[in-house]
């Protein structure tokens, strides 16, 4: 029983991580961490603003192949 609960906990954590990661969470966290480390003053972008800017920026250069 305990093993089952632990498995469920692990699955929840891992899948939750995956969902969070693919839902753009990790990218924003990286940005916040970088901002706090390098720009002590000033306000970082909100999550929504950050993702909008990222989309515009990401489509330079070769992205997709044949």
């Amino acid at each position: 029983m305990k093993a089952l609960r632990r498995l469920r906990g692990w699955l929840h954590a891992t899948l939750g991580q995956c969902v969070h990661q693919f839902n753009g969470g990790a990218a924003y966290e990286h940005y916040l961490a970088h901002w706090r480390a390098h720009h002590p003053e000033g306000t970082p972008l909100s999550a929504d603003e950050f993702h909008r800017r990222e989309q515009d920026r990401r489509w330079n250069g070769v992205r997709r192949c044949c």
């Binding site: 969902v19 693919f22 839902n23 753009g24 969470g25 990218a27 924003y28 999550a47 929504d48 603003e49 950050f50 993702h51 909008r52 990222e54 989309q55």
Partner: peptide
């Protein structure tokens, strides 16, 4: 959806 409704929520 990704731009205005729920930005960044790629999975959804």
């Amino acid at each position: 959806y990704l731009r205005h409704l729920r930005p960044g929520r790629v999975l959804e």
